[in-house]
Simulated assay, not measured.
Amino acid sequence: MIRLDAQQVVAAREGNRAALEAVVRAAERPVYNLAMRMLANRADAEDATQEILVKIVTNLGSVREAEAAGGWALRVACRHLLHERKRGAIEAMRLTFQGFATDLETGLSPLAERGLNEVEEKLAIDEVRIGCTLAMLTCLSRELRIAYILGDIFEVTDTEAAEVLDIDPAAYRQRLRRARGAVTAFVQSRCGLVSELAACRCERRVGQALKIGRVVKGQPNLSASLGDIPSVAEIRGRIEVIERERTSAALMRSTPHFTSHVGELVMSLVDAKSSNSSLQK
């Protein structure tokens, strides 16, 4: 999931700034995407990503085998998000699947009543869909959540995930089964993208999302660039081709890859520290 070039790792440990920047760039996106799915909030995910990247930069010299640096970086990220990162804004809501289901049933209304143009409608629907899938994950405990994210969203093998989380493979598989069962049961009974019988539809949630400020008209927050936003029909089509027991994973993987500029900030901190060290000599 995190792939770091061994030669760049070696050069970075020897003080090569370009190599260090390359390492930060390579780790930034997967770390941020992991943090987004763990914390379901951009600001919290950006803060966590910065904290993790600083740890990676600071402790890169402790990696014995440069070829194993990617796995080590993933362990650093997972350990931080599991045990050290404070509860984020969405986590503080302490959502449960039952409570989330009740929330989803509140304020459903026809999209046509919102007065949005075609572009605004597409963006708002995508914002609702992504926000829902991220919030849904926080209904799981952190231990189950990260097992599900690694296994079903990023498709890390059982052996690799167990090693990253420092648990027995059998224990990891048990966590993944529990998480997968909970998420699958929820989406199959509540999500209109997965089940035609479910009452909730992304387009019918737009009005409530606009009302309470979770979505801002015409302003992307979670979505990819507008040209990359799939329609509801396209998302449903992708999900329908997956066998039934994997529909929840297909839904979660429909969430886009998130991008950030945290790496630039981390490198500016590195440069500032280097400059201060030079002035003190």
Rank of each mutant, 00 (worst) to 15 (best):
R37F: 00
R37Y: 05
M38H: 01
M38A: 04
M38S: 02
L39N: 03
A40P: 02
A40D: 07
N41Q: 11
N41P: 06
A43I: 12
A43W: 12
D44K: 06
A45H: 01
A45G: 05
E46M: 04
E46D: 01
D47L: 12
D47F: 07
A48L: 09
A48W: 03
A48I: 05
T49S: 10
T49M: 04
Q50D: 14
Q50K: 12
Q50R: 14
E51A: 15
E51C: 09
E51T: 14
E51N: 15
I52R: 02
I52L: 06
I52G: 07
I52V: 06
L53H: 04
L53E: 01
V54L: 13
V54H: 12
K55V: 05
K55Q: 14
K55N: 12
K55R: 15
K55P: 10
I56W: 04
V57A: 07
V57Y: 06
V57E: 01
V57C: 04
T58E: 14
T58D: 13
T58I: 08
N59Y: 13
N59S: 12
L60D: 04
L60Y: 05
G61F: 07
S62R: 13
S62K: 15
R64M: 13
R64F: 10
R64E: 15
E65D: 15
E65M: 15
A66P: 03
A66I: 03
A66V: 08
A66Y: 01
A66G: 01
E67A: 13
E67C: 09
E67S: 13
E67K: 15
A68G: 07
A69M: 00
A69N: 02
A69C: 06
G70L: 04
G70T: 02
G70W: 00
G70P: 00
G71A: 01
G71K: 01
G71Y: 00
G71D: 00
G71H: 00
W72F: 00
W72T: 00
W72S: 05
A73V: 09
A73F: 08
A73K: 00
A73W: 07
A73M: 03
L74H: 03
L74W: 02
L74P: 09
R75Y: 05
V76T: 10
V76Y: 03
A77Y: 00
C78S: 09
C78M: 02
C78T: 08
C78K: 03
C78D: 05
R79T: 11
R79V: 13
H80T: 02
H80C: 08
L81E: 00
L81R: 05
L81A: 03
L81Y: 03
L81W: 03
H83E: 12
H83W: 15
H83V: 13
H83Y: 15
H83N: 11
E84V: 11
E84Y: 10
R85V: 08
R85K: 10
K86D: 14
R87T: 15
R87S: 13
A89L: 11
A89V: 11
A89G: 08
I90M: 14
I90F: 02
E91S: 06
E91H: 07
E91N: 10
E91D: 10
E91L: 12
E91K: 10
E91V: 10
A92L: 08
A92F: 10
M93Q: 14
L95D: 07
L95R: 14
L95N: 13
T96Y: 06
T96H: 00
T96W: 06
F97W: 07
F97D: 08
